[in-house]
Design a protein around this nucleic acid. Structure first.
Lengths: 338, 338
DNA sequence: TTGTAGGCGTTATCAG
DNA sequence: CTGATAACGCCTACAA
């Protein structure tokens, strides 16, 4: 009887099945190399003992884990949920397991998580956005672990990416509202430090203003963490200026939902008194009232393509090829022409 | 010059610093045991080489990973986000890293993830709810990895838990609306198979009906996946019966948000034409219009306490002690008296 | 305070 | 088709 005080090992199985450990290993990893008879006997013992191969030992010997790590800025709101879910599903189909950590939008924490996942043998990493210490990419190169960036497209960036052009998207959205007559713009952005998505979206707004002869310096810009409560507070600030905006562009749907709450709290009607836009087009965008005009991002497609590409990079040992996904404006009721 | 084609190992560091590997190991794990001079020298080499200890090797030798695994049913909606974030933060403070996977509400997938996390050396596991094959608990026992269940309190369950009484909570919420005069009840529940939270909430509604002399069989019950779209569709179904409900009790806030959308779509006013309640009190609950009357669950506290307890179980090698957290009804505008 | 050496559980190479 | 056996990278008695 095997020692019941500790998990069974490959040795226990081998002994019980009267074969060598090599054979046990084979029935697990390469069943065809083993005769049917032996295979069945070993299988039975594995079942009986409830044996699971030890990952660490396996990793040490084989250098592969079939694990992929993803580090997202936050799980608190739904921004990354849908894309990540698709990523996970696509990975699962290909035999990989996804491990997720969140960095709370902190560069230091992200770096820690990266090292952690790498040390744990992740075969590849998915990161959000390009803004990070270049030393991290050096480290990843040295460790030979492929990285793919999502949520942001930048051909010139160091890492390959499956994303979209945050700047152009925000520019397009802004131009559409300027075309509707809006001139006094305010923006509630996420914190732009170490966050290229936020930074580029701000730049996109300014691009549009310049293109339409507006002074980009006249943009009333506030940066806050991505939360409904912060969006609400920021909205109150913005509406408290001497010259109030006719429209408040928000860095994402979460902030926009906060802005709409804020408006209601101040007794303002959206869009009659003030218009609001979001970004991302998560479910929240069509649950709030009025529903949000926003920029649709193909989250599921992005997650799926990222999975394919990252697995390709790993298995074919090749560089990743970037993709620029199309986003599209979704007109709903939170904006009106002036 | 160390071989640059592969990650540096403890041997590389030892050689470069002219000490033994044992000393390197000590400056990493037990710095005080090493003289300041040696320590600094070794540290410098570690930095220079960008050395990170290999987790697998470490785990094999030490049997500890300072990693905790959590498996949640879904990341797609915010139900678990807040509690998990708190869990993660509390863990981080105590020096542990959290790895999370999601099971898509599938028992099979959950089991796979559990084995995966265990094989990877998770020092402990956080699981949601009690409903699962007992064999899993046997497995976990054998592997000696402590488990804590959250989101559901059940003193008689096999695993210790930090949760709340789903049944009593739902009963209380239902009684409160019955007290307001509601008699024709419908319920949009999550899928109850393998989901004790869903099952117990349904039971709670029936408890309340019985206690108030209503026929529990008269409850118009629909089970759907937890999504806004499903909530919306279910709502339409429920309002299409011969005898329409005066109130629709939803299994959580996500379904309730869907119900409210559904009502609007049908041209019905909430709460004038029909009342709606949620469960959980996530941000969504006060963003929708009208804001949801719902059951507040102390998610952050639950996550934090779960972290404390699980770490305690691991470090003190003791059994977990369960806690029943209090929930409370939050009255908002989605319910009116009849 | 530091070094030596055995062992952790697999996989993979090389013989039989 | 199967069996020895040498890695894999680190930790930790035990010695010095």
């Amino acid at each position: 009887m095997p020692d019941s005080s500790t998990a069974p090992t490959i040795d226990d199985v081998a002994r019980e099945a009267r074969v060598s450990t090599a054979t046990v290993s084979r029935v697990i990893n390469d069943p065809d190399m083993v005769s049917a008879k032996t295979r069945e006997r070993v299988q039975a013992v594995i079942e009986a003992l409830g044996y699971t191969p030890n990952f660490a030992a396996r990793f040490m010997a084989a250098k592969r884990t079939f694990t992929i790590g993803a580090i997202i800025p936050t799980m608190e709101n739904a921004i990354f949920a849908r894309g990540l879910q698709a990523f996970q599903e696509a990975l699962h189909e290909r035999g990989y397991t996804l491990l997720v950590s969140s960095s709370a939008y902190k560069a230091k924490v992200e770096e820690e998580q990266i090292r952690n996942l790498v040390a744990r043998g992740a075969d590849g990493l998915l990161l959000i956005g390009h803004d990070r210490d270049p030393a991290i990419y050096d480290y990843l190169d040295r460790q030979r672990v492929p990285v793919l960036v999502a949520w942001s497209y930048d051909e010139t960036a160091r890492a390959p990416c499956i994303g979209f052009d945050n700047r152009a998207a925000m520019r397009a959205l802004t131009e559409s509202v300027v075309d509707m007559g809006h001139r006094r713009l305010a923006m509630i952005s996420g914190v732009s430090e170490q966050n290229d998505r936020a930074r580029l979206r701000i730049a996109g707004v300014r691009d549009a203003m310049i293109a339409h002869g507006l002074d980009p310096a006249s943009l009333d810009l506030i940066e806050v963490p991505y939360s409904i409560a912060d969006g609400q507070a920021a909205f109150a600030q913005v509406m408290n200026r001497d010259t109030k905006p006719s429209i408040v562009l928000c860095g994402n749907d979460v902030l926009a939902a906060g802005a709409i709450s804020g408006a209601e709290q101040l007794g303002l009607k959206v869009p009659d008194d003030v218009s609001v836009t979001g970004f991302d087009d998560i479910e929240l965008a069509h649950v709030v009232r009025p529903p949000l005009t926003t920029m649709h991002v193909p989250h599921r497609a992005m997650g799926q393509m990222a999975a394919e590409e990252l697995v390709g990079m790993i298995e074919e040992k090749r560089k990743g090829v970037s993709q620029n996904l199309k986003t599209s404006i979704v007109q709903r009721a939170s904006v009106r022409a002036v």
